[in-house]
Structures are given as structure tokens and as C-alpha cells.
Amino acid sequence: MEDTESPVREGTTAQEKDRVLMSNKPLHRFLQKEPRSLGIVLFIFGCAELLMGFQLVGEEASNKIYVPFWLGTLFVVSGICSIYADLHPTKKTVTICLSSYMLCILGITVAIGYRVYGFTHLTYLHFRYRYRKWDTSRLAQVICIESILFISSLCAIPIFIFLCVVACFALKSSRTQVIVQCIPAPPTTTSD
């Protein structure tokens, strides 16, 4: 059966909250890992990705498939889901968080692959336009923005992996139930 009630109610004292959070239930173990603070970090990463993506509009970087926009949106959504799951921990919210974390990991791997391709293309363009002062300075700025986004994506991967593991453990049942069904053998008739 699913626990739909929040484990920590409003109006409880700090001592009661500590006692509830030190419980061994799976959802309480999820709350012990502070998904709200990690959700805030992911939200900030997402906002930074979105805002820096506006600087890349029209550039020959990862904007061909709009990486900063959809990856930033994924980060923001998973950050909001983490914050909501911390405030209202149920198996449904943790499952939604787990799916958003896995989707973000997949998106980061696609973005990293495309950004590596973009770096090679940008360094080629930087070499090609090395005698044009304006073009080289603009390409250097784009390479810096792309490298900042690349590093922030690399920093977000361990957070997402950690949150995936914690969410998987939170979804495991603390009580294993086995249903044994006994089906009687059909009556045998012996004929002599």
C-alpha cells in the first residue's frame, strides 16, 4: 500500500522532526539526503544554462539543436521536482523525480557529445578566421560560454547519479511481501 501522507507534518517540533527523519523507512531515507538543496542547485544550473543559451543564439555552437534551451529546461524541471518531492514525499513524487533524473542524464550525454563536436568545429573556425580580429574575439567568447556550459553539465552528472541512486533506494519497499498461493491438485479418479 502506498503512503500518501507526508512523513513530516507542519506544526511539529524540531525534536519530533529529527525523530521522524531518523526513521528507517525508504521515503525518510530519501529526505535525509536533502533533495531540496540539491534541487535548488539543479534549478540554478538550469537557469544559467537557459540564460547563457540566449547569448549563443545565431552562433555555430550547440544552438543548432538548441542544447542550452532543452537542457536548461530539463535541469529546471528536475530541480523543481526535487524541491516538491522534499516538501511532499510520496512514492509518486519520488518516481517522477527518478524519471526526470534519468531523462536529464540522457540529455547530458547527448549534450556532451554534441558540445565536443561543437568544440572541434569552433576551433576550426577560430583557426580559419585567425586574421579577422572581430571574428576571432567573438569565437573566443562563444568557446568560453560553451566551455562553461560543458563544465556545468559535467558537474551536474554526479548530482543526478546520486539522486537516481537515492530515489531508487527510496522506492524499494522496506517490507518484502511474498504471496503464496496454494492450488489443490485436481482430484484423481482411479478406475479398475
Rank of each mutant, 00 (worst) to 15 (best):
I108R: 03
G118R: 06
K92W: 04
L125P: 08
V116R: 08
G107S: 11
K92D: 06
L125M: 14
H126L: 15
K91I: 00
V116H: 09
Y117M: 11
Y124W: 14
L98C: 01
T93K: 01
Y124F: 15
V110W: 07
L98Q: 01
L106P: 08
T120E: 06
T123F: 15
H121T: 14
I108A: 12
Y117C: 05
I112P: 05
C104F: 06
C104Q: 07
R115I: 04
K92L: 07
C97Q: 04
T123Y: 15
Y124V: 12
T120V: 08
I105K: 09
H121P: 02
Y117A: 10
Y117G: 05
V116T: 12
M102Q: 15
K91R: 12
T93V: 00
C97T: 02
T93M: 00
I96Y: 02
H126K: 15
I96C: 01
H121V: 13
R115C: 06
I108Q: 06
Y124R: 15
C104M: 08
V116S: 11
K91Q: 11
Y117H: 13
Y117K: 13
G118Y: 04
L98V: 01
I112N: 09
Y114V: 10
T123M: 13
G107D: 08
H126C: 12
A111N: 02
L122F: 08
L125K: 14
V94K: 02
S100H: 03
S100T: 13
L106C: 14
I108W: 07
V116W: 02
R115L: 07
I112K: 08
T120I: 09
T90S: 06
T95V: 00
M102R: 15
C104R: 03
S100F: 12
T120F: 12
V116L: 12
G113T: 11
